[in-house]
Simulated assay, not measured.
Amino acid sequence: MSSYQSIHLVQRPLTHIEASCFELREHSTHALAEGQFRVKQTHMSLDPAMRGWMSADTDSYIPPVALGDVMRASGIAEVIESNNANFPVGASVMGMFGWTEQAVSDGTGVNIVPPGLPAEAVLAVLALPGMTAAQGLLEIAKPKAGETLLVSGAAGSVGSLVGQIAKAEGLRVIGVAGSDEKCRWLVEELGFDGAVNYKTDDIAARVAELTPDGVDIYFENTGGAIQQVAVDNMNAFGRIVVCGMIADYNNETPSAGPNWISVVKKRLSIQGFTMPDHFDRAPQLMQQVGGYLQAGKLQYRVHVLDGLASAIDGINLLFSGENQGKLIVKL
């Protein structure tokens, strides 16, 4: 009987995520029931949303991870044993398997990954980042060719795809990121029209310089000082899509938001959204994002950590901004 390891949430972080919040456990495998299959996870996604899943907040879009449970995460896995004809041995699958080397499923929420697609491309583009970018930009912001998009966290897994999809749809795109290297990557490789380093630039002056005709869509991933600057530069009837607030995820008290006078004067529309509300559209969204990828309109880069235990400290790279691309654990 073989064994495997998993990481369980045993303590909720107060502010920053500490190693003491997790416990590495060893398990023995057990016989499968009818309709079940066993997977060996090969790649696991680390996402900013995990910080919210670790909190005790039940007033959210998804229940928190219960103390003692395997930490929640999506990943790519190989079916290694099966009593389910829909998931044969050898199939590559994607699902919410958690921080674990192996998992057992009945197929709920699990999808077959088309052959020939690298696992890193699936997690970085077709999975949660791509679906989030497509739903938030195309379905909520409803962009029109010629408009100007400002996106924060632009070098992140979601922000970089939002900007590239917007470029493919004929928009002018300005990204906000946290280093000169990330800003160069946005402009020189992804084709953004400009980039702002929020750590070293005069944010207000730089955004005004790069958006002389104003901002029609602001895609919010981070919060922080860029919020007020974005609102100040919005055009009348502009749309703001609030996808994430990563700058506040580790703060006990959230920072103050923008003044709403401009929201009234400019008749702005603001909508928050989360992907779990739209998982019924997952097949269409993945197909839509896949079309951009096949057409050569999307580039991505990944930051790979090795081994299950690397997730314990590695998750904090998302909040320090040290990750260079989609953060993935290779098992």
Rank of each mutant, 00 (worst) to 15 (best):
Y61R: 08
S45E: 02
A49H: 11
P64G: 11
A119I: 05
V70K: 00
R51K: 13
D47S: 02
V122T: 13
S55C: 01
S92I: 12
Q36G: 02
V93L: 09
A85K: 10
I62Q: 05
G109E: 03
V65S: 08
G98Y: 14
P114H: 08
Q36D: 01
H27R: 09
A85E: 09
H30N: 14
N111S: 11
G116S: 13
S74C: 15
I80P: 03
P88M: 02
V93S: 14
A56E: 12
S28E: 13
D106I: 10
G52H: 00
N83G: 03
P64S: 00
Q41R: 13
A91N: 05
N111Y: 02
G109F: 00
A73G: 13
T108K: 15
P63G: 08
V65I: 15
H30C: 01
G52Q: 01
Q36A: 02
V65F: 04
E18A: 13
G95D: 12
F87A: 07
P115Q: 15
N111V: 15
I17Q: 04
A33H: 14
V93M: 02
A91F: 00
L46W: 08
I76S: 04
V89M: 14
V93I: 09
E26V: 12
A19G: 08
H16R: 14
S82F: 01
T58C: 04
P63K: 12
G75F: 02
E101F: 12
A49K: 09
G98A: 08
P118E: 12
G52D: 01
Y61M: 01
E78W: 00
L24P: 06
W53A: 05
G35L: 08
D59H: 12
G75P: 03
I76E: 14
Q41F: 02
E101A: 12
R38W: 14
L117I: 15
W53G: 00
I80H: 06
V70N: 05
E120Y: 05
M71G: 07
S92T: 15
F97S: 04
D69F: 04
M71E: 12
R25P: 10
V65M: 07
V65K: 01
S105D: 13
D47G: 06
S82I: 00
Q41L: 14
G68V: 11
G35D: 08
A66W: 01
N111W: 06
G109N: 09
D57H: 01
T15S: 10
M71T: 11
P63C: 13
A121R: 11
R51S: 04
S28Y: 10
V89K: 15
A33E: 12
G109S: 08
A77R: 01
H27D: 13
G116R: 15
N86H: 12
V93T: 15
H27Q: 03
V39C: 03
E26D: 13
V113T: 12
I62N: 03
R51T: 08
P114Q: 07
G109A: 09
G107W: 04
C21I: 10
D57Y: 00
D106H: 11
L32A: 04
V93R: 03
E18Y: 00
V79L: 07
I62G: 00
E120K: 15
S45L: 10
R25S: 09
R72C: 11
A49Q: 07
M71Q: 15
A49I: 14
V89H: 01
A33Q: 11
T15M: 09
V113W: 05
R72P: 02
A119R: 04
N83P: 07
I112C: 07
T42W: 01
D47C: 07
